[in-house]
Design a protein around this nucleic acid. Structure first.
Length: 267
DNA sequence: ATGGTCGTGTGACGA
């Protein structure tokens, strides 16, 4: 019995619907979690995605910015949208599905990017990001009775040295400052989460999921960051059989600056 | 050393 879950910051699901469909046909995950859909719920391209077998879709959209969705071949129940920091942004959605006799709650997050200046006194967006991850510490992988948990999404933080192209040059760059990387590590520890990507790929190996649009040649420079993550409760970690980071997708037509990451489980 | 590129939806803002 297998299960595969993908996460992808799509940076407008309407503009990039063709590559979403290409990805679903090619990778064929059981569940796809999207971030930055940049549309309202009724603008989400549900029909085209449903036609590929993803008939269970839950959406938390908003006009123009942010927005998350879960598209699943498996039935989804008990969907929930949490308003982190109480500012009305659509940055989280979760739902429950069943696999291998378990109840699993799947959380899909889009953490604030945090602006350019890593100082909350002069940059409120950085303060918002820090407050958001502080609130994430309250989310435990074992918080719900008789329920396992998976957390995916664009967390906009590259926590480890080899999650960025140059640890030293990135220490003052938002996404890799110590207050963020230590904060994200504290979220994982407080909630008893396991970093499934790093369970599969040694921490000594470079691993990126995002390459800036601003580089002249993203592939040649290869100045990436691991901003996208897949975590689980510890009971599911032993069922993980593989992680696929689809780097090719960064070179597709009209690409997102993030690539899809897929976790494969089996028992 | 510091600009560089996207998407939304029309003028800035967020990333």
């Amino acid at each position: 019995m297998t299960l595969s879950i993908s996460t992808w910051n799509i940076n407008s699901v309407r503009l990039r619907l063709p590559i979403v469909l290409d990805f679903l046909r090619q990778a064929n995950p059981d569940i796809l979690c999207l971030q930055e859909i940049k549309c309202q719920n009724d603008q989400f391209p549900s029909e085209a995605i449903t036609e590929l077998g993803y008939s269970n879709i839950v959406i938390h959209g908003q006009k123009g910015y942010h927005g998350v969705a879960i598209c699943s071949k498996l039935p989804l129940t008990e969907d929930h949208r949490q308003d982190y920091c109480g500012v009305g942004d659509s940055r989280h959605i979760s739902a429950v599905f069943a696999w291998n006799g378990r109840r699993i709650r799947l959380h899909n997050f889009y953490v604030p990017a945090g602006g350019d200046e890593p100082n909350r006194e002069i940059n409120p967006k950085f303060g918002h990001k820090l407050d958001f991850i502080e609130e994430m510490k309250l989310l435990s992988a074992d918080g719900e009775p008789e329920t396992s948990a998976i957390l995916v999404g664009d967390l906009n933080i590259a926590p480890l040295e080899h999650d960025v192209w140059s640890h030293k040059q990135m220490l003052k760059i938002v996404s890799h400052t110590p207050i963020e990387t230590e904060g994200l590590t504290a979220v994982m520890q407080a909630g008893n989460w396991v970093d499934l990507m790093r369970q599969q790929v040694p921490a000594t190996e470079k691993l990126y999921t995002w390459w800036s649009y601003r580089a002249k040649d993203w592939a040649a420079a290869d100045r990436g960051r691991r901003l996208d993550h897949i975590w689980s409760s510890s009971d599911l970690a032993s069922s993980l059989v593989g992680i696929d980071v689809l780097k090719d997708a960064r070179g597709w037509n009209q690409p997102s600056d993030h690539v899809p990451v897929t976790a494969r489980f089996a028992v």
